[in-house]
Write a protein that binds this DNA or RNA. Structure first.
Lengths: 124, 124
DNA sequence: CAGCATCCTCACCGATACTG
DNA sequence: CAGTATCGGTGAGGATGCTG
């Protein structure tokens, strides 16, 4: 079965529907996952670079989140065999495709804020 | 400024980017929010109907999640003045628009699963 | 029917210090 | 640089029983 028809099928069944969503939720939930993914959308980075760009995350958390993202197939960890050794993190194919999800969330987030403000003004 | 240009602007700035995403994350995070929203996408429902359709959620949790969703402007709670009194929950305008986000997550979720399985087969 | 009150537990997360 | 080890707080969420 093609992916497209599979998608259509899932959208009809409430149970499958929620399961597929949770697959995506898993990928981005946790306090830092979105920050890390967003950071890597701007290009591959090393551990300390991510740490800087994310801000105020401690190494234990960063290490943990990176491991989970890697296990989930969102990012990949590569050891460059140049000297000195450099370890670089980057998004996988799946990881890159998450951008569509994040973009949909941004569109909604901004629209939602606008709608909420409008209702406040009108005293609703 | 129009919403569209506001969206374009936000997507350029990493900080704004993540903030807008978290606006959306807030709306759907929690163990039951997606279930509840998905349930209400099929039409307005009463407390006990939601409870049945979601399955195994206890009333305390359902009550709490519904309150949060209402406060966030995702659902509305309406008391029908017929006798006996009926209390009905339904999605707001913003709530309905969340469907786009959920659909994007489903698309990604299914594709991601397919990609992962392929890699397993090829022994990567 | 549509919730609220209470108690409890465990996973999430932070701070700090240490290592190859 | 790229992490690991240890300790400790807090809050999300479960179980159960009660109420207008």
């Amino acid at each position: 079965m093609s992916i497209d028809s599979k998608i259509k099928e899932v959208k009809k069944c409430p149970v499958q529907y929620v399961l597929a969503i949770q697959e995506a939720m898993n990928a981005i939930q946790g306090k830092w996952k979105v920050h890390i993914i967003a950071s890597l959308l701007f290009g591959p980075k090393r551990f300390s670079e991510i740490q800087k760009s994310v801000g105020r995350i401690n190494p234990r958390m960063l290490s943990k989140e990176l491991k989970e993202l890697e296990l989930n197939g969102i990012i990949k960890r590569e050891i460059q065999n140049i000297s000195p050794v450099v370890i670089e993190y980057s998004l996988t194919e799946s990881g890159c495709k998450l951008k569509k999800v994040l973009d949909a969330m941004i569109d909604w987030g901004i629209e939602h804020r606008v709608i909420s403000l409008k209702k406040l003004k009108h005293g609703k």
